[in-house]
Amino acid sequence: MKRALAIMVGAALILLLATLTLVVMPYLQMTAEQVPPELKPYTEQQLRGRQVYIANGCMYCHSQQPRDPAFAPGDRDRGWGRASVPGDYAYDQPQLLGTMRTGPDLFNIGARQPSIDWQLMHLYSPSALVKDSIMPPYRFLFRHVEQLEEGDKLVNIPAPHGPKTGYIVATEDALALAEYLLALDHSYPAPTLPQPEQPKD
């Protein structure tokens, strides 16, 4: 039994070391980072929108992390914004950095497309606004009504993408999601510069 135990304990200790370097130390360092003063906490509606974003897996196609132009200039040149810093994510629980860019980066989508009508139309029918878009339509976040009622948020869908009769109305979820997307605006200056590549000392 001795050796079997030695292998298992040794294996666990090595993992513990990795946990120390990859989990504990980054946690200590990053949670101590300065939060940019211009960064606003999410409103309740935006938080709800964030949950819709999570539930429908937006992050499997969209990242939220523009990179340093010195490293990947395309990120800045496409207008996706300055490189993000840990402080930008202070209110993000869980983080939604993403690892795929089937669609564009969304870290500053609120600055690029500040119109809620655009966001709602795009969610209802992406290909109506972006030709050949492969983003799935989120029609299930909208209601199709014959008569508008007071307080309904009407979404004008250009033909032929909308229904033949009646109106398309945004649900609370669609509005919340659009508000969350509009809140994705990190165009303020970063107090801590994106860490430059340093030679090891």
Binding site: L22, Y27, M30, P86, D92, Q95, L97
Partner: peptide, 8 residues
């Protein structure tokens, strides 16, 4: 929270 969650 935040970016440290990405590391984890």
């Amino acid at each position: 929270p935040g970016a440290s969650g990405a590391a984890v």
